[in-house]
Amino acid sequence: MPLTVVITGASAGIGRATARRYGRRGADVVLVARGESGLEAVADEVAALGGRPLVQPADMADPAQAEAVAAAAEREFGPIDVWINCAFASVFAPFDRITPDEYRRITDVTYLGFVNGTRAALARMLPRDRGTIVQVGSALGERSIPLQSAYCGAKHAINGFTSSLRTELLHRGSRVRVTVAQMPAVNTPQFDWVRNRLDHHPMPVPPIYQPEVAARGVMYAADHPRRKQYYVGASTVATIWANRLFPALLDRYLARTGYDAQQTTAVPPTGEDNLFTPIDRDPGEDRGAHGAFDDSAHAHSWQEAALRHPATMAVGAGAAACAALAGVRRLRRTVKGAC
Rank of each mutant, 00 (worst) to 15 (best):
P2N: 12
V6E: 04
I7A: 09
I7G: 08
T8R: 05
A10L: 00
S11Q: 02
G13R: 06
G15D: 05
G15V: 07
R20C: 10
R21G: 08
R21T: 10
D28L: 04
V30W: 08
V30C: 13
V32D: 10
G35P: 01
E36H: 07
G38M: 08
L39Q: 00
L39K: 00
E40Y: 11
E40F: 09
D44H: 15
D44C: 08
E45H: 02
E45R: 05
A47G: 01
A48Y: 09
G51L: 02
V55Q: 04
V55D: 04
M60R: 02
P63W: 05
P63Y: 07
A64N: 04
A70Q: 10
A70N: 11
E76D: 03
E76G: 00
P79G: 11
I80M: 05
D81I: 02
N85P: 06
N85H: 07
A87S: 11
P100E: 01
D101V: 08
E102I: 04
Y103K: 07
I106S: 06
D108K: 00
D108L: 01
G113I: 01
G113R: 01
V115R: 00
T118R: 01
M125P: 03
M125Q: 06
L126A: 12
R130H: 06
I133M: 09
V134W: 03
G137V: 03
L140Q: 03
Q148H: 13
Q148V: 15
S149T: 09
L165R: 08
E168G: 12
E168M: 09
L169W: 03
H171M: 09
R172V: 01
R175D: 15
R177F: 02
T179Y: 05
V180Q: 03
A181S: 11
A185H: 00
A185N: 01
N187Q: 08
T188A: 03
Q190K: 08
F191Y: 15
W193V: 13
H201A: 07
P202C: 10
V205K: 01
V205F: 11
P207K: 09
P211M: 07
R216D: 12
R216V: 01
R216E: 11
G217P: 02
A221E: 08
A222G: 13
A222S: 12
H224S: 06
P225G: 10
R226D: 15
Q229G: 11
A234L: 11
W241R: 10
N243G: 08
N243Y: 01
R244W: 11
L245E: 15
F246C: 14
A248L: 13
L250R: 09
R252C: 13
Y253C: 13
T257I: 11
D260T: 14
A266F: 13
T270F: 08
G271L: 02
D273M: 08
N274V: 01
T277V: 15
P278I: 10
R281T: 03
D282F: 04
P283T: 06
E285P: 00
E285C: 02
D286F: 04
G288S: 10
A289M: 09
A289Q: 15
H290V: 07
G291N: 05
S296P: 00
E304I: 04
A305R: 12
A306P: 06
H309I: 03
P310V: 14
P310R: 14
P310I: 14
A314Q: 13
A319M: 09
A320G: 15
C322K: 08
A326C: 03
G327D: 04
G327N: 07
V328P: 00
R333M: 13
K336T: 14
G337I: 12
